Computed example of a mutant assay.
Amino acid sequence: MENTTTASRTTVTLTLQTPIERKGGETVTTLQLLKPRTGDLRGLLLAEVLQMKTDAVAVLLPRITQPTLLRHEVDELDPADLVACAVEVAGFLVPKAAMDSLAA
Rank of each mutant, 00 (worst) to 15 (best):
E73S: 08
G25Y: 02
T6K: 08
Q66L: 14
T68F: 04
I64P: 00
A97N: 05
D55S: 15
E76L: 06
G43L: 09
I20Q: 11
P67D: 06
E21P: 02
T11Y: 10
P36Y: 13
L34M: 14
T18M: 05
T68K: 12
T6V: 00
A90Y: 03
L16N: 02
L82T: 00
P36H: 09
L82D: 00
M1V: 13
T15E: 11
I20H: 12
A80S: 07
L60W: 08
S8P: 01
L14I: 07
F92Q: 04
T30S: 12
M52Q: 15
P79Y: 02
G39A: 10
L102K: 10
E73Y: 11
G39R: 10
E73A: 09
P79M: 03
V87K: 02
E76M: 05
L69Y: 02
R37A: 15
K96A: 15
L34I: 08
E76C: 00
L14M: 09
F92H: 02
L69M: 13
R71I: 15
T68Q: 15
D75V: 07
I20S: 04
E2I: 14
L34S: 14
T27P: 00
V59F: 05
V57F: 09
T54D: 13
P62F: 15
M99Y: 12
V59I: 15
T13Y: 03
E48F: 07
D78P: 01
G43H: 11
D78T: 04
L93H: 04
P95C: 01
K35R: 15
T4A: 09
L77I: 06
A84L: 03
V94A: 01
L60R: 03
S8N: 13
S8M: 11
Q32S: 10
L14A: 06
F92P: 00
P62T: 12
T38F: 15
L14R: 07
A84H: 03
E26I: 03
L50Q: 09
Q32D: 06
G43R: 06
G91D: 04
R22F: 07
K53G: 05
T10A: 13
D40L: 15
R22I: 11
R22S: 04
L61P: 00
L70N: 10
L44Y: 10
V74T: 01
T29N: 05
T30Y: 00
